[in-house]
Design a protein around this nucleic acid. Structure first.
Lengths: 162, 162
DNA sequence: TGAGAAATGTTACAGCTCAAAGTATAGGTG
DNA sequence: CACCTATACTTTGAGCTGTAACATTTCTCA
C-alpha cells in the first residue's frame, strides 16, 4: 500500500531543492556572464522567434507578462534589446535583439550546471527518458491552468521507453 | 542514440514550468490562508523540530540562512513566531511558535495543488515511485554543493517504496 | 457611430531569493 | 590576556515573481 502523504511530502522537499539549485545556478551564471538565467532565456527566446511580442515571450519562457516586462526593462537599459511598437496594432510591442544582444548571447554558459549535464549524459538512454518523462508529468500535474492536459500525455507507457 | 542537447533543453523547459507552477500555487495558498508556501514551510519546520536554530530551519527547508531570516522577520511581525536568544551561546537564536502560530498552521491548505494530489494519488504505486525517484535524482544531480552525494542514495531500490 | 468588451502591455506592490558584507559571540593559541 | 579564527545570525542590494490596477488601442455590435 503506497504511503501517499509521505510521498507527497517528499515531492515537496525535492521540488524545493530543485528550485534552490536553480537559484544557485543562476547566481553562478551571473558571475560568468553578467546575465541571470531568466534574462538569458528571454534573450534566447527573442533570438529564436525573431521580433516577438511580450505575450509570446511570456508563453515561451513560462513567465508572466509582467515579469517579462521587468526583465525586458533591464535588458533594454543595457542595450541588449530594443522595443518596437507595431504600426498596425499599436498595443503590440515587439522585442528585438541589438547587436550587443547577439554578442552577449554567444558568451553565455550552459544554464544547467556542468555536474548535471555530465551526470545526465552518463545516464543510459532509457534513464534519460524516464527522468524526462517524469519531469514532464510533474510539470503537467502541477499546471492547474490546463486541467485537461494530462490525459494527452502517454510518454510513460513502457513501450515508449525501450 | 540519445539526443542529449535536446533532452537538456527539455529538462530546462519543464523545470521552468514546475517553478512557475510552484509560484502560482503559492499565490493561491496566500489567498486561502494569508501565508506563502515558504512561510508555511518555515512554520512547519519549527513545529516539527521544536525550538530550533535558523541554520537548522534553513537546512530543513532548503533556503539560505538569509532567506529564512527575512521570512522569520515577517512571521515575527505577525506574532506567529518568537525569537529566543540562547543563554549558553548568545550567537544562537531559537525560533519558537506562538499559540497564534500553532493556530494558523491548522488552517493551512495542502501546499501542492489539489489537482496534483489527485493525479499523483491516482498513479500506480510503481509510477509514483518512478516519479519520485526521478525527482530525487534530478535534485541530486542539480546539487552542485554535494558533489559526492549521488552514490550514497539508494532510494531507487524497489523495496524501499512498496 | 458610439459604448462597452477584449487584448496588449506597463506600473505598483509585496514577497522570495541569493551572495556578500557586517555584527556579535565563542573558542583556541601564543 | 590578546589576537585570530570560526560560527550564528542580520543587513544590504539586486533581481525574480506574481496579482491587481491601470492606460492604450482595437474589436464588436447595436
Amino acid at each position: 500500500m503506497p504511503d501517499s502523504p509521505q510521498h507527497l511530502h517528499d515531492v515537496l522537499v525535492h521540488l524545493r531543492r530543485i528550485i534552490r539549485a536553480t537559484d544557485l545556478q543562476s547566481k553562478r551564471v551571473v558571475k560568468a556572464c553578467g546575465l541571470t538565467i531568466p534574462q538569458i532565456m528571454v534573450l534566447r527566446s527573442i533570438e529564436e522567434l525573431g521580433d516577438v511580442t511580450v505575450r509570446k515571450i511570456s508563453d515561451s519562457v513560462s513567465l508572466s507578462q509582467a515579469t517579462v516586462t521587468t526583465i525586458l526593462n533591464r535588458l533594454e537599459d543595457r542595450k541588449y534589446v530594443e522595443r518596437v511598437r507595431a504600426q498596425k496594432d499599436k498595443r503590440i510591442v515587439n522585442a528585438r535583439l541589438t547587436s550587443s544582444g547577439m554578442e552577449i548571447l554567444k558568451t553565455t554558459p550552459p544554464l544547467l550546471h556542468e555536474k548535471f549535464i555530465d551526470e545526465f549524459d552518463s545516464l543510459e538512454g532509457w534513464e534519460q527518458t524516464q527522468v524526462l518523462s517524469s519531469l514532464q508529468r510533474i510539470a503537467m500535474m502541477m499546471d492547474a491552468e490546463n486541467l485537461d492536459a494530462a490525459p494527452l500525455l502517454d510518454i510513460n507507457s513502457p513501450d515508449a521507453l525501450v
